[in-house]
Design a protein around this nucleic acid. Structure first.
Length: 442
RNA sequence: GUGGCCAUGGUGUAGAGGCAACACAGCAGGUUGUGGUCCUGUUAUCACGGGUUCGAUUCCCGUUGGCCACCCCA
């Protein structure tokens, strides 16, 4: 290869040249300390409600065999067709970053023989998922999901409970959510419906856009969420899936709705809701915020449904199951709009020092206070007392313990009331005792 | 993956073909060991690469990234 660029000056790694834009990979981001308070609130709500309903945590690998997702999520789905992060290892394993977690959970259920545990098995998970999609607001290539999966039980009350749990988590966070729900029946009834739907739209093929014609052959169900006004109009007359459900699915769906009525979970029947993953059967639902602008942008906070066939697809025994996932990035961004109060990392006492002797003594006093269960702050790397007091103030300390050369020689310490500015000198051996008394720790 | 808009200190913004401005945050000071106010100083090769030009941060092209719409989803 001719090295034309050789004439150019070496890009000189050592020069002062600014590095090229240094940023995380596209569609990925850092979640900084200032953000973590919001995430903590969201995570706590998820975990506490899921635990209340008897769900237990499971962690599965972030990477799985590609085949798991191809079989589980569906070869035809966009997620697998164009969004999956796949790679081959040095050992020729074909692996993928998980684009969602349900397939992994079912895999874990099978590979750990959980069918021998009391059923249903109720699991929750929380972690990053990866999809190589074009980034947008609320859509990241690495995003976090919290989800619950309930395996080994087919009763409709389980579907309802999962809807309720996801709804309650959002409610707990002050987010007003609306559930959109539908039933897509068994694979067989869906095939019949698909046929009916495509023959309906085929009769009106002339009025379809090119894009929608493609969908007609590829996945006619997707026509139902087309934004083309002409299609929306045609939709009104289109066959609806409820009319094609088998008796069992219909009865199941009715029971789910009855349970939701019982708990007063607001829901909208959405005959056009079909989810983009192949494994769903019967109940499917999505959660949206009540505000209109969000409806326009179609960004669901979460979604889920029943997937009775998945375990078998993955090579396990037939196992009825259902679950949901919340998009935590979207939940957190909604939560931030509500401006919840974040507890700052406050401190009760601050230990300030002057001089090397003072610092050594202060190091020990800090440990004693910490061990006594007092929330204590320090800035031992600072020499100036002024800078230390500034930090003490910023961290909201009610008291400051000040130890300088003089105090070390006298065997004393200064205790300063940060509100009034009054100070007293105490015996160095009684610092912890004095502070605890002042804080009312007994 | 397709199309549109955009890119200035840590953050939010101003600016104009010829010294890059303001606010906030940060750091250091305002004499000898004390915070919340105030004052001073300090913090930018204007995302990266190339082109036009005497001269580009400003105009043009490309790259990267962000936002928006489509697609799809969380």
């Amino acid at each position: 290869m001719p090295k034309k660029s050789a004439t150019k000056k070496e890009p000189a790694v050592s020069s002062k040249k600014a590095p090229p834009q240094i940023a995380p990979p596209r569609g990925m981001r850092d979640i900084l300390p200032a953000e973590q308070g919001f995430w903590d609130i969201a995570r706590k709500a998820c975990i506490s409600i899921a635990s209340t309903y008897g769900f237990e945590r499971i962690d599965t690998p972030i990477v799985e065999e590609t085949a798991l997702f191809v079989r589980g999520v569906g070869k035809q789905t966009d997620i697998v067709e164009k969004e999956i992060y796949s790679f081959e290892t040095a050992g020729n394993e074909k692996l993928s970053l998980r684009p969602e977690c349900t397939a992994s959970i079912v895999r874990a259920y099978i590979s750990n023989g959980m069918l021998n545990q009391p059923q249903p098995v109720k699991l929750w998970y929380m972690g990053p998922m990866f999809r190589h999609d074009r980034p947008q607001r609320g859509r990241y290539r690495q995003f976090f999901q919290f989800g619950c999966e309930l395996l080994g039980e087919m009763d409709a009350v389980c579907d309802a409970q999962l809807v309720i749990i996801s709804y309650l988590i959002l409610k707990e966070l002050g987010i007003d959510a609306v559930v959109r729900i539908n039933s897509i029946g068994t694979p067989e009834s869906r095939v019949n419906y698909k046929n009916a739907l495509s023959s309906y739209f085929r009769s009106k093929r002339a009025r379809l856009s090119e894009e929608d014609r493609k969908r007609l052959t590829k996945n006619p169900l997707r026509l139902l969420d087309s934004k083309d006004p002409a299609v929306i109009e045609m939709k009104a007359e289109a066959p609806q899936i409820v009319d094609w459900l088998d008796e069992d699915s219909k009865a199941h769906f009715m029971r789910v709705l009855e349970y939701l009525d019982e708990i007063n979970v607001p829901y909208q029947l959405d005959p056009y809701l079909v989810r983009g993953l192949d494994y769903y059967t019967k109940t499917v639902f999505e959660l949206f915020t009540a505000s209109e602008e969000d409806e326009a942008t179609q960004s669901a906070l979460g979604g889920g449904g029943r997937y009775d066939g998945l375990a078998e697809i993955l090579g396990g025994r037939p196992t009825p199951a259902a679950g949901f996932a919340l998009g935590l990035d979207r939940v957190v961004s909604k939560l931030k709009e509500l401006n919840p109060q974040i507890e700052p990392n406050k401190v009760e006492v601050f230990v300030a020092q002057l001089g090397e002797q003072g610092r050594k003594k202060a190091l020990m006093v800090f440990e004693e206070l910490r061990e006594a269960g007092v929330k204590t702050g320090e800035a031992f790397s600072k020499d100036a007392i002024k800078a230390q007091m500034e930090i003490a103030n910023r961290r909201g300390a009610a008291w400051a313990v000040i130890i300088g050369q003089k105090e070390v020689l006298d065997g004393t310490a200064i205790i300063r009331d940060m509100d009034s500015g009054t100070q007293e000198i105490v015996d160095a051996r009684k610092i912890v005792q004095e502070i605890k008394k002042k804080l009312g720790h007994g």
